[in-house]
């Protein structure tokens, strides 16, 4: 870190955020090996089991390219890349690695998003069920999915969860201010995507 001209601390971009680099690392070799293995699995297991036609097919005395050729070509690209990593770039300097810390970060981020969208998916229908229980009505969310305020319930709560959750992850905790900002963001997105257009559906209203 270095001090900025006006006293604001300025970031040296090259250090923070970069993956750890180790000149003696064998991460290229590991990545190369995994790629060769994955390519072999694609070409020799997945493609034969999950594609109807072969690399080349004969249809009514005419030879034509089958559906297998394209994915096998993709696997060849991956395999050559892996082999070059193993044979040519095995000892190059500056080999970045995917660390456990990276894995923890992305797992938590993905979990926040998945939970947020599951909240989005089920909050609206659940609210309708609760209202039916309290009032004895027979409302169906599917029929209300294009009517305010029902159509906003899931997106509103799930959206706040996603935005506030990721903000909390970045800042190491949540604050009332961040919750307020997340709410404002979700309201703004509703105003942009839904209010001016009748034929657009916010999540999750295309699925319910």
């Amino acid at each position: 870190m270095i001090g900025g001209p006006d006293g604001i601390r300025t970031l040296e971009t090259s250090n923070i955020g970069a993956s750890p680099v180790d000149n003696r690392s064998n991460s290229n070799a590991i990545l190369g090996g995994l790629c060769v293995l994955a390519a072999a699995l694609v070409a020799f297991v997945w493609v034969p089991l999950d594609v109807d036609s072969g690399v080349v097919e004969q249809v009514r005395r005419r030879v034509q390219i089958g559906d297998s050729l394209a994915p096998v070509t993709a696997a060849v690209f991956i395999a050559i890349g892996g082999l070059v990593l193993l044979l040519v770039e095995r000892r190059v300097p500056d080999q970045p690695a995917f660390t456990l810390q990276n894995l923890r970060f992305i797992a938590l981020s993905a979990a926040i998003i998945v939970v947020g969208f599951l909240i989005m998916r089920f909050t609206g229908p659940l609210t309708v069920d609760v209202v039916n229980l309290l009032t004895g009505g027979e409302l169906q969310y599917r029929l209300l999915r294009d009517s305010a305020p029902w159509k906003f319930i899931g997106y509103f709560i799930g959206g706040i969860f996603v935005v506030a959750g990721l903000m909390a992850q970045a800042e190491g905790g949540t604050t009332r201010k961040n919750l307020g900002i997340a709410t404002a963001v979700v309201i703004a997105l509703i105003l942009i995507f839904d209010v001016p257009f009748d034929d657009l559906l916010l999540p999750p209203n295309g699925d319910v």
């Binding site: 994915p71 991956i78 890349g81 070059v84």
Partner: peptide, 15 residues
Amino acid sequence: GSPAKGLISTGLGLL
């Protein structure tokens, strides 16, 4: 800067 990684990226996109 790495043709090997470029090929892997291309192969994944094609797949």
